[in-house]
């Protein structure tokens, strides 16, 4: 792709400092620091859907929240169309968020229970001055139509809708600002499988017709494969592999991506595996290991993995952060 990236994430780190207990303060023990993101490097191209996958607690949601401006990263930069958007305030932040919207995981808490759908949408439209006068009402109808909510939905309250419908209201609310980029944080993970498909297909369609750029954060591999043009695999707050969806799922390079894909259940009895795909647990983000973050669990780890953190470099069809990317069997 020769286009300039829409979003560039440069060496993004996010540390949450835990409050120290009195005993720790007296004993002068250092504050505990949770490293949710450890140097994420990512380019998002205009018009693409980028899937972000990883285990629970790997920093996917933190990344999404940093991009949406909800969390302020402790280090690194986020560039939107070439301009830094970290720590924006007031009107500039509003202008940025008009372009970059977010959709949330929990359909039951992401809508204000005391506002009708119309109130919520009209508020978003008028705060940003997207329309005025009678056009506001027409736009509400348009948006509801866009996310295929039934006629008469506008004057209902969120509790009168199902989970899938609520997520579609969330999409409509984000679309009210006519954004360029949507960040979907586990958009459908709280929904039934049958409803997941509806919502995801709707999102893909909207992306197509409106030319949106979508960041699709999820832990469900099937889903990510279905929606994404490119996929980034994230482990312990850093991207370990990124590449076009097809090749990455067919031939993952990084040992962690392989393990993650192998861990996904398969319906084919011939592909049933006997051993667990990966040993051990995600190390605590309170105590990120030095060197390659994955070396503690990696079957191929060598001496260099304990010392040096590998950088992302071309491997397979995309990029992988592994010292042995070329040397691994079957790469």
């Amino acid at each position: 792709m020769s286009l300039a990236p829409l979003l560039s994430i440069r060496d993004l780190s996010m540390r949450f400092t835990k409050p120290r207990s009195l005993a720790d303060a007296v004993a002068r023990r250092p504050r505990k620091v949770v490293s949710a993101l450890n140097g994420v490097e990512l380019d998002v191209m205009p018009g693409e859907t980028l899937g972000i996958v990883g285990e629970s607690g790997c920093g996917k949601s933190t990344l999404a929240r940093c991009i949406a401006g909800l969390n302020r990263p402790t280090a690194g930069d986020i560039l939107f169309e070439g301009e830094s958007v970290v720590g924006l305030k007031g009107a500039r932040r509003r202008a940025y968020n008009r372009r970059v919207q977010m959709m949330f995981q929990d359909p039951y808490t992401s809508l204000n229970p005391r506002m009708t759908v119309r109130d919520a949408l009209e508020e978003a439209i008028t705060v940003h001055g997207m329309r005025s006068g009678a056009a506001v009402g027409r736009r509400v109808e348009e948006l509801l139509d866009l996310v295929r909510l039934p006629e008469g939905a506008a004057d209902k309250y969120p509790h009168e809708f199902s989970g899938g419908q609520r997520q579609r209201i969330g999409i409509a609310r984000a679309l009210a600002l006519e954004p360029t980029c949507l960040v979907a944080d586990e958009l459908v993970s709280a929904l039934d499988v049958s409803v997941q498909a509806q919502v995801v297909n709707l999102l893909m369609e909207l992306q197509d017709t409106l030319g949106l750029t979508v960041l699709f954060v999820a832990h469900d591999l099937r889903l990510v494969r279905h929606v994404s043009h490119r996929v980034a695999v994230i482990y312990l707050g850093a991207i370990v592999e990124i590449g076009p969806s097809g090749p990455l799922f067919a031939n993952p390079v990084h040992p962690y991506s392989r393990a993650l894909l192998a861990a996904a259940p398969s319906l084919d009895p011939a592909k049933r595996r006997r051993k667990p795909a990966i040993a051990g647990e995600l190390p605590s983000p309170l105590d990120v290991p030095p060197g390659c973050p994955f070396h503690l669990r990696c079957p191929h780890a060598g001496e260099i993995c304990r010392r040096e953190k590998p950088a992302l470099r071309p491997a397979g069809a995309g990029l992988a952060a592994c010292h042995f990317a070329e040397a691994l069997p079957g790469a």
Partner: peptide, 21 residues
């Protein structure tokens, strides 16, 4: 609740989020 975060992402002022939401 996420609707408070949604309000921030939607660019609403703190006053609006506190008193209206």
């Amino acid at each position: 609740n996420d609707y408070a975060a949604a309000g921030r992402v939607l660019g609403y002022s703190d006053t609006r989020i506190i008193f209206r939401h």
